[in-house]
Design a protein around this nucleic acid. Structure first.
Lengths: 254, 254
DNA sequence: ATCAGCGTTCTGAATATCAGAACTTAAATT
DNA sequence: AATTTAAGTTCTGATATTCAGAACGCTGAT
């Protein structure tokens, strides 16, 4: 057991600064914005942002002196995708599935109390103004998503238990807003073998989700079919079968 | 003019460590790998990686003690995409173009002596083993790409001049490997108004590329149609017209 | 059994960090 | 037009942090 704290405090602080750029809704942040948010000295934040800029991590607007994430961040995203072993296989199966049902198909993995979208496949002809266009790297709370609920229902860890401690933020009038309702829904998911999102994250949008297990039966994530609520309601059984078949194919391959 | 160096050396060094994970072909890097590469002390690298891991930037494999970029990096990529103002408009136009010509369509921006892929749209039915599947965040040298040559030809800065100093690395037997050949090709691009890549980056793959200017006529990047070499050769004029029309639509909108 | 090579832990001399104060703009208010 | 406010920028040195080096433990190869 180590006695000393080996963490590099300067780096820790600097990464907290960088985190502000993902957690904030604003794309451009000023020195004072960040200094206030993290209770840091202005000149300290100045030096940190200056270094990030020199290293190509942030871009600075010469007029406003505000900073934003540079395109270098896309290179990191790309590197992660390259390194994901299961990437290609899952993506190809999702493409087949999307073409077969002519609906949007997603793959996501758990991340804390959220899910993280990894892949999305859109059918070639789809409504351009369809509300839910999640892309790689986007997060969504577990409790208001079919994939999230599929993961909660079939996770071997105490993920569901942890939902007792979170605050539920309604996205629509249908969003589950307390642990009891969530628990009852999860029981139904376990009975059915698939999870439903009936307008709980976006009005008029529904989804069917099933969990993904690797060949050692470890929960990896979930996949879902997403579409207009009425269609999802009507075809949920058919979709769940197609999803389970795709999930099984992934299970065999990873 | 400032006298002192305000950069935070600890952060600068730490970011160089993080950069190793994009520049290396290996997805998992050990402490000694990085320490040797950057001429740093092992224990120093240990502390830095430890901090990155604690902050969720890197994942550590408990068996091998090696590190890799975590999925958090995808969140940064997503944030950048969200912040890109022109994103949606260009993506939609590329989708239309891809459907119209039934080929892969790309959008990229210049980044140093490379280009950085931002968007790619694949036709719904395309060969799964088609070699060139660039995605957001991938880099490619300017001299061996139709988009790169389109940017070199129409850049207002001395981008082309800078090509005198670089080393050309052949990717195929067709790759341009010296400045003189590149210059002659760029002259042709200026005459034609579009750039060609005829198997110069990948055997049997070709592309037609045109530059993108915003409404103030600043060069933003380039778009291209990419496909089987023989088809690209045959339809280059038709494709160049379609690309120019799309480029014009983007010019009007951003 | 020995060695080589890796990650890990610990320490304090040396160094880089960062709070604070002062300055410079720029924009908003009087 | 003068004043105030609020932002970014520069500079400094007391001091908290960093990091080189040495030592250790583990694993796998010789």
């Amino acid at each position: 057991m180590k006695k000393t704290d080996n963490s590099v405090k300067t780096l820790k602080k600097s990464l907290e600064v960088l985190d502000c750029f993902i957690s904030s809704d604003e794309s451009w942040l000023g020195i004072t914005d960040i200094a206030n948010q993290l209770n840091l000295n202005k000149s300290n934040v100045y030096d940190i942002l200056y270094t990030y800029e020199k290293m190509g991590y942030l871009d600075k607007d010469p007029d406003s002196s505000k900073y934003t994430l540079s395109l270098k961040m896309l290179e990191f995203g790309h590197a992660v995708n390259q390194h994901l072993g299961y990437a290609r296989c899952i993506y190809d199966l999702l493409q087949d599935l999307s073409r077969s049902v002519n609906q949007i198909v997603y793959f996501s993995v758990p991340r804390g109390h959220d899910l993280l979208f990894l892949y999305s496949v859109y059918p070639h002809i789809h409504q351009r103004d369809f509300p839910y266009r999640s892309v790689s790297g986007e997060r969504c709370p577990l409790y208001c998503s079919s994939m999230g609920k599929a993961m909660l229902a079939f996770s071997s860890t105490d993920l569901l238990e942890q939902m007792k401690d979170i605050t539920f933020e309604p996205r629509t009038s249908q969003t589950i807003t307390n642990y009891e309702d969530l628990f009852h829904d999860i029981v139904k998911v376990r009975e059915r073998g698939y999870a439903l999102d009936l307008g709980e994250s976006e009005y008029g949008v529904g989804a069917v989700g099933v969990p993904i297990f690797d060949s050692r039966n470890i929960l990896i994530g979930a996949i879902s079919i997403c579409g207009v609520l009425a269609v999802i309601k009507e075809k949920q059984v058919e979709y769940s079968k197609q999803l389970k078949e795709a999930a099984f194919q992934i299970h065999l391959r990873i």
